[in-house]
Amino acid sequence: MSTMWGLTVRGICEYKDKILLLKIRSKSAHDAGKWEIPGGKVKKSEFFDEALKREYMEETGLEIDIESLYNVVQKQYTACKTKEQVNSIQLIMKVTCKSDEVVISEEHDDYGWFSQGEVDEMIEKELLTPPAVNAFKK
């Protein structure tokens, strides 16, 4: 059986020196209660920058501008519906927004704006998803 490849794009948004993280809902099948970088899967025939803007709007209500590529992370997981092995390439982009007024979707229970020091502490306490931890490692 061949391995599937998927593309995910996430955006590290800094506003007034704080980084936006979202808390995955407690009912989630994956990483419940952990904090993650906003973003999601790129759909077929969708440009990754458009996907990131769409996901940000869906998850946070924020309009973003994409600044630069920050990191690339590879993650392997088993697809919930099909049980197929998927190799996910995650593009981690640096993004900016003009407001810190977040409206979260039903995918998340909470959000927060954290300093880099606070993010580092959360990584030490294993409060972030593994891909998020890897995203912040340079």
Rank of each mutant, 00 (worst) to 15 (best):
G39V: 01
G40V: 02
K41V: 09
K44E: 15
E46D: 15
F48L: 11
F48V: 10
F48I: 13
E50S: 10
T60I: 03
G61T: 06
L62Y: 00
L62T: 01
E63G: 08
I66R: 00
S68E: 09
S68N: 08
Y70A: 14
V73D: 02
V73L: 13
A79V: 05
A79D: 09
C80Q: 15
C80D: 15
K81W: 12
T82R: 06
Q85N: 14
V86D: 02
N87T: 14
S88L: 04
S88H: 00
I89T: 13
Q90H: 14
I92H: 01
K94W: 09
T96V: 13
C97N: 07
C97T: 10
C97S: 14
K98D: 07
K98N: 12
V102S: 01
V103H: 12
V103K: 11
V103M: 15
S105P: 03
E106V: 09
E107D: 09
H108Y: 13
D110N: 08
D110Y: 08
F114K: 02
S115D: 07
S115I: 12
Q116Y: 15
Q116L: 12
Q116K: 10
G117Y: 14
E118F: 06
V119W: 00
D120E: 14
E121N: 10
I123M: 08
E124F: 11
E124V: 15
